[in-house]
Design a protein around this nucleic acid. Structure first.
Lengths: 133, 133
DNA sequence: GTTTAAAGGAGAAAAATTATCTATAATCTT
DNA sequence: AAGATTATAGATAATTTTTCTCCTTTAAAC
């Protein structure tokens, strides 16, 4: 039994081939939109329904097995849940990457400034990546 | 001729009553979703079409007269364009507020770290506001 | 192997967004 | 200020996106 099978079961999700493939695709590609996911999935499962993609994405979101990344001007992408991190997005090629940045100072400043208990910081840095300059 | 009328014209947008009201609502409420906007607009213009809301929001977005704020787990809200800033969102009451934070250090770090030309930084801090603790 | 509970697929339904068309209103021209 | 010009509002249809229903199949438990 592979890793993902166990991980899915730990989240009370049956390890179906479709589900394992979704996880696999997200692992390989890093970040994928619903459309992109459907496109690659239909190659493996010619009769897969778009509803299956949605159902699984939503289930995995509820179980925090995956997370949604909302992007300015683009459709959301999804990624496997990992340590808290930020994202860069190239406005030319659309490539999204993880980036580890220490936001503690900022979060603390904001917290005291507004008397606000911060539980999460979502940061997306948009621009042009080195390949697209 | 009021301020908004001139501002709209500067963006090549006719200053219709509906449009002025949208701008006014955004100014007063700060951040509004499409639904919330439609709800208040229909009180003033009983026959306003939802399409009018969408058309105007999209037009104003294109003209950067307003901006979209994408929020984790919630629908997007829109705000009048102003100086670059970040947002806090209370997960209990849903209230969204502007917050001015100096992200320069972070942006510079990210830029050199990934060799990435950053043009925009979108930061949303989620948590619990002082009123909801 | 049998049981049972969950998941997949097909398609309908619902929700969200965009497009089309015509009358009207805002702006421009003079 | 009046008429000409052009953009916009509203109604509705169309499209797109997402969710739901129903029935069959499959994974997991025993």
């Amino acid at each position: 039994m592979n890793n993902y099978t166990q991980m899915l079961r730990n989240h009370n999700l049956k390890a179906t081939p479709q589900r394992l493939a979704i996880v696999d695709m997200l692992y390989m590609h890093g970040h994928m939109s619903i459309d992109a996911l459907y496109e690659v999935m239909i190659k493996r499962f010619s009769s897969i329904s778009l509803a299956t993609i949605y159902k699984n994405i939503n289930l995995m979101l509820e179980n925090t097995f995956i997370q949604e990344v909302k992007l300015p001007n683009f459709k959301s992408v999804y990624e496997l849940t990992k340590e808290s991190h930020s994202h860069t997005m190239c406005e030319k090629c659309g490539k999204i990457n993880d980036i580890n940045l220490d936001l503690d100072a900022i979060v603390n400043t904001a917290s005291t400034l507004k008397n606000f208990e911060i539980t999460k910081a979502d940061l997306v840095l948009s621009g042009v990546c080195k390949n697209c300059v």
